[in-house]
Amino acid sequence: MWTGSSDAPPTARIAMLAPSLQPSERRVAEAIAADVEAAIERTAQEVARVVGVGRASVVRTAQSLDYEGYPQLRVALAREVALNSSTADDEVDGSMLGMLRGAVDRFAGRLSHTVSALTEENLQDFVRVLDESERVLVAANGLSAPLGLDLAMRLCLWAARWSTCPTRSRSRSPPAGSAPVRPAWSSRARERAGRRSR
């Protein structure tokens, strides 16, 4: 069931919830996300026929995404498509610089989609848990390794205890900068450590 922001578009909800949905609901959600325009035009019965599930599975999928039923999901999908197409209409010239600007604009437009699922309560809970953690393991490999290292460095700056789990290289030597670092503890972490040593 959806617990994120009520402003989150349907495709963001599908991306977040798909792994936790029942198999038939997941198939419906993936079919909707794969062809949003067709999902807007179809009835719940037509979606059920195309996906190969019962109509009730389509309605349950919409309800799992926090809509009353499939008609409300269709309206939300139409709204999302309309909002996305209004930003896509601002075409730029065919130059390389114009293409770069267009790519940056599309990326910037997707950032709000990425964070649309967050609520103030979820974010505060996450920050509280992170602040109360004695140790945070940052595991990243491949193309996400620089992002993992950046997060670990930011946590270090915030005086949190952390460690990384580097990708194994063929030479079996850890990549530069991947060794665990133990920065100065925050006052809260020092208090906890003092209580345990007593």
Rank of each mutant, 00 (worst) to 15 (best):
M1C: 02
S5P: 01
D7W: 09
A8I: 03
P10L: 09
A15Q: 02
A18H: 03
Q22F: 07
Q22M: 09
Q22Y: 05
E25L: 00
E25G: 00
E25Y: 03
V28F: 08
V28I: 00
E30G: 07
E30Q: 08
E30T: 10
A33M: 07
A34I: 06
E37A: 15
I40N: 10
A44T: 12
V47G: 02
A48L: 01
R49F: 07
V53T: 13
G54Q: 12
R55S: 04
R55W: 04
V59M: 10
V59D: 03
S64K: 11
S64W: 06
L65V: 08
L73T: 03
R74E: 00
R74A: 04
L77D: 00
A78P: 07
A78W: 05
N84A: 09
N84E: 10
S86W: 01
S86M: 09
D90K: 14
S95M: 12
M96L: 15
G102Q: 13
D105N: 14
D105V: 13
F107T: 14
A108S: 14
G109N: 11
R110Q: 14
H113V: 15
T114A: 15
V115K: 08
T119K: 09
E120G: 14
E121L: 14
D125G: 12
F126V: 04
R128W: 02
D131G: 09
E132F: 09
E132N: 10
E132A: 14
S133E: 02
E134V: 08
V138I: 00
P146A: 02
P146W: 02
L147I: 08
L149C: 03
L155V: 00
L157S: 02
A159F: 01
A159R: 07
W162N: 09
W162I: 01
T164Y: 12
T164G: 01
R170C: 09
S173F: 14
S178M: 15
A179R: 14
A179P: 00
R182S: 13
A184L: 10
W185A: 13
S186W: 05
R188M: 05
R190V: 09
G194Y: 13
G194I: 10
